[in-house]
Amino acid sequence: MNRIGIETTQYHVLAVDDSIIDRKLIERLLKTSSYQVTVMESGVKALEYLGLLDDHDENINANSNFKYSTTGNHNEIEVNLIITDYSMPGITGYDLLRKIKESRVLKDIPVVMMSSENVPSRINSCLEQGAEEFFLKPVQQSDVNKLKPHLMRGKLGKENVINKR
């Protein structure tokens, strides 16, 4: 709550892209819209951050110092939306999407995919796997403006899960 008693919500977005240029662009656009942003340069790092890395995934990145499982405690991480590039080395954005949607704890977090390639079959596959949106790069402010309804729905979904406990 702020000083006059009105609740203000700052949404936390996890942005994943292997391109530093695209990461900086999406981070700037999200921060301009007053979102808290955490950026990751790979699907492996995002899985580590979310606590979804398993032994198979860890083998993809031998430099990893972290080891989590889907049974770990995710409550300290409050992520309201994930936006990820489709094409990344190692764990792709599509793999990341699937792992999030398979997670009992994180499946309600909205996921938005982005790609510089306009491939209809790829877009359809992502939407069928549970992605909320598919943006073509470069991401624009008008794209970021489409995130708010997904963020609000994700927040409400999480509160409903907490209230049912």
Rank of each mutant, 00 (worst) to 15 (best):
V111T: 10
K148T: 12
D57K: 02
N118T: 07
K101W: 01
A131Y: 04
I60T: 13
I100T: 09
K146M: 10
V44K: 08
T70Y: 08
I123C: 05
I91K: 05
S34N: 14
L52H: 06
V111D: 01
S69W: 02
N61A: 11
L96P: 11
E48Q: 10
L156Q: 11
P110I: 03
S115K: 09
E76N: 12
M113S: 07
Y49L: 05
K137I: 06
V144K: 06
F135Q: 09
S64G: 15
T92W: 03
P120I: 08
I100E: 01
L52W: 02
I60P: 05
V105G: 00
L96C: 07
S115Q: 09
S42L: 04
K148C: 07
V39N: 10
D57I: 06
K146H: 06
Y94C: 02
V105C: 03
L136N: 08
S121T: 14
Y94P: 00
D95S: 12
V111Q: 00
S125H: 13
P110N: 04
G157H: 11
L127S: 02
L53M: 15
R122I: 12
I77F: 04
L53I: 15
R104L: 10
T84M: 01
I100C: 03
E58S: 15
L106Y: 02
D55M: 08
I77V: 10
L106M: 09
L97Q: 09
I91M: 07
N73W: 03
I123P: 08
V144G: 10
I83Q: 07
T71S: 14
A131P: 00
H56D: 14
N118C: 12
G90K: 07
V144L: 07
E102M: 14
D108C: 04
V144M: 14
E76F: 05
D57H: 12
N59V: 03
G130P: 05
M113W: 06
K107M: 08
I60W: 06
S103K: 09
L52Y: 05
N80Y: 01
V105K: 06
T71D: 11
K107T: 12
R98F: 05
T70N: 15
S125P: 01
H56I: 09
V119N: 13
T38Q: 12
K67R: 14
